[in-house]
């Protein structure tokens, strides 16, 4: 049993290669809940909290992209220059837990856990983010749509570390909306991220299926409609809801989730129209 605390990415990759079963720990806001409640007995842990290389973000204006390191915390996405570049990510970050959680939780941790309720994930889906992974054998890049494979399941291979995501910039609009039982400290029961670029609408849904769902049929339909008015927005919401695949569970019902996702998708489209 050991906790490893590398400070360089190369060292972390060596540790992950030597111990592919070790848990990769970032902010700890998911992992420690499971440990505290005896749902998980950690054996070996590689803490990435001190790897500064993972905590950087940068804009590539030439390529029209932003790289967000896996160790960037929600507090940094919520305010300041990154929030201006990725407003939907900022809106999503703002809904995560409490200030204490947002000071610790990271985008890489959200990807590692890969919960359908992960607040950052609909943003990565709607904005067509690419997920970067590294190992001692090299690096690879996977579109987010292929990265998340099921509830709390992803394409990360043993020995790999999620290093960050690349997100295209230049959307004409992007927004995020979330429904929970109250206004703070809440796990989403339905969420949506909507972006518009050159008249093309993209919408991704959280907490209403085993993975983040892109409502591609509704996207196609609304992108072909010349003028978005109230009745179009209403129909868009309804079409989005038919593409969701929610379940009844302890947090909500499938019927309510379908309703909620229809309402927030409609409102996001209206917001994009009002800009």
């Amino acid at each position: 049993m050991a906790v490893m605390t590398p400070t360089r990415l190369d060292d972390a990759l060596e540790m992950a290669a030597g111990n592919p079963d070790a848990h990769l720990l970032s902010g700890g806001t998911d992992f420690m809940v499971e440990v505290n409640f005896n749902h998980r007995k950690p054996v070996d842990v590689i803490s990435l909290a001190r790897v500064d290389e993972l905590r950087q973000w940068s804009e590539d204006r030439g390529a029209g992209t932003i790289f967000v390191g896996a160790g960037v915390v929600y507090a940094e996405m919520e305010k300041g220059p990154l929030s201006a570049l990725l407003p939907a990510l900022a809106e999503a970050a703002r809904t995560v837990g409490s200030p204490q959680i947002r000071a610790a939780g990271t985008l890489g941790g959200n990807l590692g856990t890969c919960s359908p309720a992960g607040d950052g994930l609909p943003v990565l889906s709607a904005l067509d983010a690419q997920v970067h992974l590294a190992s001692t054998g090299g690096t690879r890049t996977v579109p987010f749509s292929a990265f998340m494979t099921g509830p709390k399941k992803n394409d990360r291979r043993p020995g790999e570390i999620i290093t960050g995501v690349t997100i295209p910039t230049g959307d004409d609009f992007q927004g995020y909306s979330k429904v929970g039982v109250r206004n703070a400290m809440v796990i989403s029961i339905a969420s949506a991220c909507l972006s518009v670029r050159d008249g093309r609408v993209r919408v991704a849904l959280g907490s209403v299926g085993p993975v983040i769902i892109r409502a591609t049929a509704a996207e196609e339909w609304v992108s072909s409609v010349p003028v978005v008015d109230a009745s179009v927005a209403l129909e868009f919401g309804e079409r989005v809801a038919t593409e969701s695949r929610p379940i009844d569970d302890h947090r909500s019902t499938a019927a309510y989730r379908r309703h909620a996702v229809s309402v927030i998708s409609r409102r996001l489209l209206e917001r994009s129209n009002d800009r």
Binding site: V3, G27, T29, F31, V45, A49
Partner: peptide, 12 residues
Amino acid sequence: KAVCSCLVLAAS
């Protein structure tokens, strides 16, 4: 940064 110490793995 203000964080919840219950969610910090002490050794980390």
